[in-house]
Amino acid sequence: MYSDQMSLADALATWSGESDERQALSEIVVALAEAGVRLSKAIAMAPLEPPAVTITPSAGEGTNASGDEQKPMDLYADKVVLDALAGLDVAAFCSEEADEPVTLRAGGRYVVAVDPVDGSSNLDVNAPVGTIFAILPAVDSEDQMPAILQAGNRQLAAGMIVYGPSTVLMLTVGEGTDLYVLDLNTHHFRLARGGIQLPTEANEYAINASNARHWGPGIAEYIGDLVRGKSGPREQAFNMRWLASLVAEAYRILTRGGVFLYPADDRKGYENGRIRLVYEANPISFLVTQAGGKATNGVDDILDLTPIHLHQRVPLVFGSATKVDRVRRYLVDPNLQNASSPLFSSRGLFRD
């Protein structure tokens, strides 16, 4: 779609053309990317220069609206992103770190949903973290909550910035998924790979196996078959990966294939899954589907779900389409949920 290694701003200018709507949308994406550049430095320097935060948490002492612990970097990043959007065509901003949306511009054409620092607990162990964002059309109302609670298939753009060995931006504007890398010399994102296609076959899966005793029917059997490897019904070996970082897992699967699972389970607070729909599952799912993959809550497509509230949680399964479809079969087919049946021990007909 674009020339090799062109800057994000130039790529978006090419995409925007003479369209006023696209130009305004591009300005928002560039602003979010610039916030990412600032956060990349702040995260790298945090062990030596922790962010100075004077913001009082809004959802309770030291926790956000979802009940998760708030670290100083969470609050700092939230302010950095919010400040970056000032003066742009954004009606409202919502974040994992705030109870309610923040009104920015009356009559703005877009709303922005953000997880400022996904996986912030990884900061203590120098593991990858990231920023996830979604941009949706605003509604003709002072109250923009209906705009924020639109189904994911209404997203106009989505992306994730991963702060790792390189700082990378995965971006979609609904015309494929592109990979940009932060150039440390110019401090701009440059195109590394356009039109990423998620590999269709890979013998890798990502799940937190320490929760196996809490999984319900279907997930336990699916993972059990993978663990059995060549001696099981799949008749091949699989590798498990788990980084405890949604953005890092998504980046690996977008570039190497496989499947990610964060299912619901029987623990308190996990009955409906753990990933936030509006500002985590939806943008990640948009990136994945635009790269030829698939994303569901185990059964239904994530992008077809209409959020009920801002911080709603959902189960999340994404990756290669054939693998995501296979997980669904395990969840809906009773024959695949009975580990004691003869069919379970010799399910050659279910290997596709």
Rank of each mutant, 00 (worst) to 15 (best):
Y2A: 04
S3E: 08
Q5N: 15
S7Q: 06
D10K: 13
S19N: 13
D20K: 13
L25E: 03
S26T: 04
I28L: 10
I28K: 04
L32C: 09
A33T: 03
E34A: 11
R38K: 15
L39K: 11
K41N: 08
A42P: 10
I43M: 06
M45I: 06
A46D: 12
P47W: 09
L48P: 00
P50D: 12
P57S: 04
S58V: 08
A59E: 04
A59L: 02
G60I: 02
T63C: 12
S66R: 15
D68Q: 14
L75E: 07
L75H: 02
Y76R: 08
Y76W: 14
A77D: 04
V81Q: 01
A84Y: 08
A91L: 09
E96F: 08
A98T: 14
T103H: 13
T103P: 01
L104R: 01
A106C: 07
G107P: 15
Y110H: 12
V114T: 10
P116A: 03
S120D: 03
N122M: 11
N122A: 09
V125K: 15
P128Y: 13
I148H: 06
I148F: 11
L149W: 06
R154H: 13
A158L: 07
A158G: 10
A158N: 05
A158S: 15
G159I: 06
G159C: 09
G159Y: 07
Y163Q: 06
Y163I: 08
G164L: 11
S166Y: 14
S166E: 14
M170C: 09
G174D: 09
R190D: 06
Q197H: 13
Q197D: 11
Q197Y: 05
E201Y: 09
A202F: 01
A206H: 10
N208G: 05
A209P: 00
A212K: 10
W215T: 03
L226T: 04
V227D: 06
S231K: 13
G232Q: 05
N239L: 14
M240S: 12
R241V: 14
L243A: 14
S245F: 07
S245A: 10
L246N: 03
A250V: 10
T255A: 12
R256V: 08
F260Y: 15
P263M: 05
R267E: 11
E271R: 15
R274H: 11
I275P: 04
Y279E: 05
N282Q: 10
I284K: 04
L287D: 02
A295Y: 07
A295P: 10
T296S: 15
T296W: 08
G298F: 02
G298D: 12
V299R: 14
V299C: 05
T306E: 15
P307R: 00
P307Q: 00
H309K: 11
H311N: 05
G319L: 03
R326D: 15
R326H: 13
D333P: 02
L336T: 05
S340W: 13
S345A: 08
S346F: 10
S346T: 06
R347D: 13
R347E: 06
L349A: 15
R351W: 09
D352K: 11
